[in-house]
Design a protein around this nucleic acid. Structure first.
Length: 891
RNA sequence: GGGCGAAUAGCUCAGCUGGGAGAGCGCCUGCCUUACAAGCAGGAUGUCGGGGGUUCGAGCCCCUCUUCGCCCACCA
């Protein structure tokens, strides 16, 4: 009936096979008509340019675990997959390609270039999708979406137009973050600040009509070309008389005023600040207040423009040294100091960002943010772990308007048209050919495209067909959960919240689970430049997807980063192999077994059998709870401990007797239990270990044509009532066996050495229980002859151990090393004496006895009694051993 | 400048509402016991970062200090 499994588990042989079958069977497909309770997750869409890294692997493993678990728990699961067009990143990739061909995008023209990007996407984009499949991701792949798809683009337009009509999208000329490498504006979030060593230059600006100087301090001397004022603090005694005076800006020879503004901190630098309103965010604000000139001295590539006079054409770096040198020559450089300050870099190309004046499109996010804050405050969306709520609120409360226009070609082109006749803007869902204000035919569409994150903000509903009111939306929106790293909490999560609430009138997800970042074994962020990257695909090749997933799951404790190393994954591969071999054992012993014959009502189960069923039930309960609480590490730990240390170490060992013996009734019930627990265990493990569990499950007797394990139910428990007494009996057996093994180990008695054991019990009931399990004890502890009784005669030479309230005596006349046994006993006595002392002291404390709850008190009293008992027994044994030694020495 | 997090066995980390400190890996000892040497059995290992406090009782709660890490922020 059942198949033989090879001796060692080889993931490569089976992973691809099962994934293909699952897809063919449509196991991942979500059916909005099934009527089952819905569970939905949208994937955080990886960039089309993306290659699977550890962050993806963790993120998607966790999502897959949740989806498989929910699917098995009776839910209609939609895991919506797709990729992001990643505007700047993708444009950069294709531009690089063009560059290698000695081309540049301007030669191709906009249309040609965009076509080229699509072509690139066809050929090499989206490889990450196949990599996700290798992980085992059970997305509904037939629904794969791309943010540039027609449907999603329609959603983008719809949102843009509506926000514009509602006055929440506007255009303004102000200072923005400009990447001189990518030639585009960026939002505040897309600028990464890094502390860098620089200098602070103190420059002398000559006062007009005087021979005095005003000294200003700056970290960017080249921007002085665009200065339009010098500001001082209004209450600064040193400069009070200079307010309203004029200085002559050196090199440029422009007369600029000295103004007073609260912004200036008189404690810092010289207390006088040069104002460059067109190239500094603070100065911009001051400039607005004082109606200063905004003099732009840079071009789009970050070079000095015609306003920089003789410096025109120089890069900022070159202009800086030239300006400083020229000022020095004129005696206007007072001093230079070292200074560390934050420099903004482009998050895509890491070029230094320039604050730059330009006309851009903005979303007024304040009203949207308000709703998004309320939704979390009111619990419509829960952020897990909760500590992230604070970060979320912090950001939402201080949110600035979002610059959404980008001066690149790859992306959703802004649906706005400029009329050259009336100068007005027409914003429209459909492309237009005439101005909606004056009817003029001379309209031209805005050349800018939208920030990539604009379309990702719509992902939870745009992927489900919005703006149409689809059945999919009706069934699966709001989504149940979003699984993501905190690095895109603002970029993505916050914006989805705002857009979802605005356009769907409901939160996009009920829960957000924020997971850790994957780092290397030293806790460093993985990066190509550091060379510490572990490639998930290499890991899968080497250890298998299951071991990899299990490792990620086991380390996904809340609120902490994951330090990953390949050794760890190797360790968990052993676990997968353990499960594999336990299954081999089972299959060997279930060859003549048919699960249709399972009927627990007709048999009396042995204590070990009841115990393992009981433990299986508890494990199922614990796993359900852990997964419901997103405690992935707990789920993994529970599964690991049960599988290895209970099912394998104890139950399988104990099952050998009935399975190999000739009591056919005992053999049959052992088979029933073995099958029941293993089969259930596989279902429990499936969300974390999808491949190996499927392979084994299919090999089990009974036959499962065309049914995948993920279509079976997730265990809630065996449903078989177990007898508490039986469970306790099994636990007693375990204590006895461990005690015997302990003596064996400590006295170096090899397993081959046969021993006899005497068990001195407190009462007849215990004796009866032991006798019933005699064979099991003998087999596990490798005991030849076992005698249990009350007040049994002790032979002279015995090794003594105490198991609960049973004295375990191992007679070893003539063979026992008395010295060694004495040492062992002494060690045991020391250990137990610590307990006795501890509890004696604790219970001797009147205040403790007065205040502690009864339960605690009783528990401690019982523990003291047990320890005292044990101590006494061991003490007596020790005395005997010492006496024996004396006798031996005398003779 | 704000905010968050971490410090527990040699290493990586668990530890729920306070009731005698745990796991995995590594280490030591003995075993090729017919599922598994990617294994089995046994064993050792901790001033839970320092100091104070609350409590009958603190890894856990409060205060404080130290050392790391991260996020946000316009001090020239």
């Amino acid at each position: 009936m059942s198949m033989q499994l090879p001796k060692a588990y080889d993931p490569a042989l089976i992973e691809q096979k099962w994934f293909d079958i699952w897809e063919q069977r449509g196991d991942f497909r979500a059916d909005e008509h099934s009527g089952r309770p819905a569970y939905s997750i949208v994937i955080p869409p990886p960039n089309v340019t993306g290659v699977l890294h550890m962050g993806h692997a963790l993120n998607n493993s966790l999502q897959d675990i949740l989806c498989r678990w929910k699917r098995m728990s009776g839910y209609e699961v939609l895991w919506m997959p797709g990729t992001d067009h990643a505007g700047i990143a993708t444009q950069n990739v294709v531009e690089k390609q063009l560059h290698a061909e000695n081309l540049d995008r301007h030669e191709l023209g906009r249309e040609g270039f965009v076509q080229r990007v699509w072509q690139w996407r066809e050929e090499s984009g989206g490889q990450i999708i196949n990599q996700l499949k290798r992980l085992g991701a059970s997305c509904d792949w037939e629904r794969e979406r791309f943010t540039m798809d027609d449907g999603l683009s329609r959603a983008v337009r719809e949102v843009f137009v509506r926000l514009y009509q509602d006055g929440l999208i506007y255009r303004d000329n102000r200072l923005i973050n400009w990447c001189p490498r990518c030639h585009t504006a960026l939002s505040d979030l897309e600028v990464e600040h890094e502390d860098k060593k620089g200098s602070i230059w103190h420059l002398r600006y000559p006062l007009v009509g005087s021979d005095r100087y005003l000294v200003v301090a700056t970290t960017r001397p080249e921007t002085m070309l665009g200065d339009s004022a010098v500001a001082v603090a209004p209450d600064d005694e040193r400069y009070r008389d200079l307010i309203g005076a004029t200085v002559l800006l050196p090199l440029v020879n422009r007369e600029i005023p000295v103004i007073a503004d609260e912004y200036v901190d008189s404690e810092f630098g010289s207390g006088a600040v040069k104002m460059t309103p067109a190239h500094d965010f603070n100065d911009f604000a001051v400039g607005k207040r004082h109606d200063l000139d905004f003099i732009n001295v840079l071009d789009e590539s970050g070079r000095i423009n015609e306003n920089g006079g003789s410096y025109q054409g120089l890069s900022t770096v070159d202009a800086r040294s030239q300006v400083v040198a020229d000022l020095d020559k004129l005696g206007l450089l007072e001093k230079v100091e070292d200074h560390v300050h934050a420099v903004g870099e482009c998050y895509r190309c890491h070029a230094v960002i320039e604050p730059y004046m330009s006309k851009q499109w903005y979303v007024a996010v304040k009203p949207l943010a308000e709703q998004a804050i309320n939704a979390v405050e009111s619990g419509q969306t829960a952020i897990v772990p909760r500590q992230w709520e604070k970060t979320y609120f912090e950001w939402m409360n201080n949110i600035q308007d979002w610059c959404i226009s980008r001066q690149i070609w790859w992306g959703h082109r802004i649906p706005a048209w400029f009329c050259s006749d009336c100068d007005k803007i027409s914003v429209s869902l459909e492309d237009i050919t005439s101005c909606e204000h004056c009817g003029s035919q001379t309209v031209e569409q805005e050349s800018d495209v939208l920030d990539t994150w604009f379309s990702s903000a719509l992902w939870p509903f745009s992927t489900m067909g919005w703006p149409d009111r689809t059945r999919t939306l009706e069934t699966f929106y709001p989504t149940s959960c979003l699984v993501t790293g905190f690095d895109i909490l603002f970029f993505w999560v916050a914006r989805m919240m705002m857009m979802g609430l605005r356009f769907m009138d409901d939160v996009p997800f009920k829960e957000v689970y924020i997971h850790a970042l994957v780092r290397d074994a030293q806790g460093q962020k993985m990066s190509k430049s550091k060379g510490n990257v572990i490639d998930p695909l290499t890991v899968i090749d080497e250890y298998g997807a299951d071991a990899f997933r299990f490792t990620l799951c086991a380390f996904a404790a809340m609120g902490r980063d994951i330090r990953l190393s390949t050794e760890r994954i190797g360790g968990y591969r052993h676990f997968v192999n353990k499960l594999w071999n336990a299954s081999r054992f089972a299959l060997l012993n279930l060859e003549d077994f048919d699960p249709v014959n399972i009927d627990f009502s007709s048999v009396e189960l042995a204590p070990a059998e009841q115990w393992i069923l009981h433990r299986y039930d508890q494990t199922a309960v614990q796993m359900n709870r852990a997964l419901a609480d997103y405690k992935f590490n707990d789920a993994a730990a529970v599964l690991y401990a049960f599988t290895w240390h209970e099912f394998c170490d104890w139950y399988i060992e104990l099952s050998k007797q009935p399975l190999y013996g000739d009591d056919s009734a005992a053999r049959h019930s052992a088979q029933m239990v073995l099958f029941t627990v293993l089969e259930g265990l596989l279902r429990l493990a499936h969300p974390i270990l999808p491949f190996v569990t499927e392979e084994i499950w299919q090999a089990l007797p009974g036959g499962r044509p065309n049914k995948s394990i993920m279509m079976a139910s997730f265990p809630a428990g065996s449903g078989i009532t177990t007898d508490q007494k039986a469970v306790a009996d099994m636990e007693m057996l375990m204590t006895i066996v461990t005690a015997v093994r302990n003596v064996r180990g400590e006295l170096d008695l090899p397993p081959g050495r046969k021993i006899n054991v005497l068990l001195n019990c407190k009462d007849d009931a215990t004796v009866t229980t032991i006798r019933a399990q005699q064979a099991a004890i003998c087999s596990l502890a490798r005991v030849e002859e076992l005698v249990a009784g009350v007040d049994i005669d002790r032979p002279q030479e015995v090794a003594t151990q105490v198991a609960g309230d049973i004295d375990v005596l191992i007679p070893l006349a003539g063979v026992i090393d008395l010295v060694e046994e004495e040492a062992r006993l002494q060690k045991e006595i020391d250990k137990v004496q610590k307990d006795v002392d501890f509890f004696t002291r604790k219970l001797g404390n009147e205040k403790f006895v007065q205040n502690a709850p009864k339960q605690v008190l009783e528990k401690d009293r019982a523990k003291l009694a047990v320890a005292q008992d044990k101590s006494k027994t061991l003490q007596q044994s020790l005395e005997k051993i010492v006496a024996l030694q004396r006798v031996a020495a005398e003779s």
